[in-house]
């Protein structure tokens, strides 16, 4: 599943203000609300569901990257966004490093295949160091949008 199928560019945040795990998750969920991908009523239950998932084990997978996510019945298709924190946020990552790059994903529980295909795409691209470096260096949401578009066109991973 390509980024354009679950990331709406209006929701991308390149200068996250939050400095805590819950703060970042809330800021990204709010970005999805502002861009019309989620409604205001979904904020609290989704933030709580993502935090509950984090309690099972951090989705901070190392190298400054985290993929906070949940399955939530209030969405009918995978909804995601990308956030960048300049200073980095302590996310209890596997390697103990702060996280600069966030891929937030909310998937419907009854479509596990879609969730896997979104995760598959995110992880494939994240294995490419150039993709990660370009994203972390992005100055604007438009830069991020372009990098995601290039990734969708297989310009990073063969």
């Amino acid at each position: 599943m390509k980024f354009c199928n679950f990331v709406k560019s209006e929701s991308i945040k390149v200068d996250l203000d939050a400095t805590s795990k819950e703060g970042v998750i809330r800021e990204l969920v709010n970005a999805l609300i502002s861009s019309g991908m989620l409604t205001a009523e979904q904020e609290e239950p989704i933030v709580q569901a993502i935090m509950k998932r984090e309690e099972l084990g951090s989705t901070g997978i190392g190298r400054g990257i985290a993929v906070p996510h949940t399955k939530h019945a209030s969405v009918s298709q995978p909804v995601g966004t990308v956030g960048i924190s300049r200073g980095g946020v302590d996310f209890q990552s596997l390697d103990g490093e702060k996280v600069q790059l966030f891929f937030l994903l909310i998937s419907p529980p009854d479509r596990p295949g879609d969730h896997l295909r979104a995760l598959e795409n995110i992880s494939k691209q994240l294995q490419d160091d150039t993709f990660c470096r370009f994203l972390k260096q992005s100055k604007t949401a438009n830069d991020v949008r372009q990098i995601l578009e290039e990734a969708d066109n297989n310009q990073f991973v063969s």
């Binding site: 997978i61 596997l94 596990p112 295949g113 896997l116 295909r117 995760l119 598959e120 995110i122 992880s123 494939k124 994240l126 294995q127």
Partner: peptide, 12 residues
Amino acid sequence: SVLSILTLGATQ
């Protein structure tokens, strides 16, 4: 590697 395993996209 967690990331590598995810790239399999292995469904039920």
